[in-house]
């Protein structure tokens, strides 16, 4: 694997690790917007981070199919 592929492999694998947020398992506070406990908001942020990461991946790394694209 070259550097670019390794970078994207790590980036794709990272959310799987960050999903298991054992270090803040029962961290309720702060309550975000007055109704979302922190651990839920963290998972929301993780999902948003995935949107941004996937968008960058599609733009900068997704290999072109020269036959059809």
């Amino acid at each position: 694997m070259n550097g670019k592929v390794t970078f994207w492999f790590i980036m794709m694998f990272l959310p799987f690790l960050l999903y298991v947020d054992f270090w803040q398992w029962n961290t309720i506070y702060p309550i975000v917007f007055g109704w979302i406990p922190w651990h839920v908001f963290y998972q929301v942020l993780l999902n948003i981070a995935m949107v941004v990461m996937f968008a960058c991946f599609c733009k900068y790394h997704w290999p072109k199919n020269h036959f059809k694209d």
Partner: peptide, 24 residues
Amino acid sequence: GVGFFGYLATTTSLAAVFFYVIGY
């Protein structure tokens, strides 16, 4: 409780990685 969110939503979002890995 609402902790179910990560359990259901994030896990399903993670599956989207495979839309490239398998889907493409």
